[in-house]
């Protein structure tokens, strides 16, 4: 039967609301969630396409057997050579379960947060829209459009916009007063004199760890925007690793457990060097392609949970459809048996 239900967009850390349209048990489309305070019914292409994950679910995998196989692999390996990867795609509850699982078994834990880190006092979206000057690092209009919209609002309130992007055709440049394709370091140095307490620096990447210290030492509010919906929430639970540290972790790993992430997308690494990869995933991706064992788990559409968005708001969502698969928390319970 036709039904519309609320959920959250899992495409990035902005935390937009999205309605899905159900025809019986099948998700057939999206519907604007105009009441949602973050996006007022506006969703970017990634957001509207996010429901496509239902189309690449694992139909042929016997999940009980997969869990049993995974359990066997884990028990046969020395715990110091097992690494667990948690990600910003996991909900708060899942990250906590993964962390406990790793700690109680003595596994290494890897968590990559785009080389960004947690900032306690971030600018809210409203503060960004009301800023006197906006320093935008990354093509936010294109990559995080609902943050981009706040920059547009700031511009409409006569804010001066300074934009940095590696892409010289960045969409953000079209509304910017000052544009640059330099390094983050040079960008911040160049405009250091212009940053005041009415400014907001919003960024979705840095070149190196040193940039973060520099950003944090600024006299204005900052807003890091992550590529995954719950990176901010996970940062509150697990310490992140830099990409170098992650590679080092991979080098020392014999058995890699990936919880709902596509590590091949984030790292240019020869994963063939790791003897076994087990991927716990809700739908097909490049990591499940190279994984030795795939354990199907519930997607965000199939379970309750919560994500913390870029400005630190914890938002709950409820399951939209049923699934026979277990959630990550339940899979971990099984593995612990």
């Amino acid at each position: 039967m036709f039904e519309i239900k609320h959920t959250l967009c899992p495409s990035c850390s902005v935390g937009c609301g999205i309605n899905v349209i159900l025809d019986g048990e099948e998700i057939v489309g999206t519907f604007p969630y105009k009441r949602h305070p973050v996006n007022a019914g506006k969703n970017c292409l990634n957001g509207r396409n996010s429901i496509e994950c239902c189309e690449s679910k694992f139909e042929d995998i016997d999940s009980e057997k997969a869990i049993a196989d995974a359990s066997k692999e884990i028990k046969s390996c020395d715990s110091s050579e097992v690494s667990v990867i948690c990600s910003g795609y996991d909900t708060i509850e899942e990250v906590e379960a993964i962390k406990n699982f790793a700690e109680s078994n003595g596994f290494n834990i890897g968590f990559y947060s785009d080389d960004l880190k947690n900032v306690d006092d971030v600018a809210s979206y409203d503060e960004l829209a009301a800023a006197g000057k906006v320093f935008a690092i990354g093509d936010l209009l294109y990559e995080n459009p609902l943050i981009g919209r706040r920059i547009v609002h700031a511009k409409q309130n006569d804010a001066k916009i300074y934009a940095l992007s590696k892409n010289e055709n960045a969409v953000t440049f079209n509304i910017a007063d000052e544009t640059s394709t330099s390094s983050v370091q040079e960008f911040l140095d160049k405009f250091a004199g212009e940053i005041d307490d009415s400014s907001v620096v919003v960024f979705n990447y840095v070149d190196e760890a040193g940039d973060l210290d520099k950003l944090e030492s600024l006299s204005c509010k900052v807003l890091p925007v992550f590529s995954k919906p719950n990176t901010k929430g996970a940062l509150g639970i697990v310490d992140p690793k830099s990409s170098d540290e992650m590679i080092e972790l991979f080098d020392n790993t014999k058995l890699l457990l990936v919880f709902n992430d596509d590590i091949t997308e984030d790292f240019d690494y020869d994963f063939g060097r790791i003897s076994k990869i087990i991927s716990f995933a809700c739908c097909e991706n490049d990591t499940t392609e190279i994984a030795d064992i795939v354990v199907p788990v519930k997607s965000w559409l199939e379970q309750d949970g919560s994500f913390v968005n870029a400005m630190g708001d914890e938002q709950n969502f409820s399951s939209v459809i049923e699934s026979d698969n277990l959630g990550i928390v339940e899979v971990i319970e099984e593995l612990n048996k």
Binding site: P32, K42, N43, C44, L45, R48, L141, Y142, P145, G148, V152, V171, N174, I175
Partner: peptide, 13 residues
């Protein structure tokens, strides 16, 4: 119009 990001939301809705 220079802000358009070609997301096709207008067409799709």
């Amino acid at each position: 119009w220079s802000r358009c990001i070609s997301c096709y939301a207008c067409r799709d809705v």
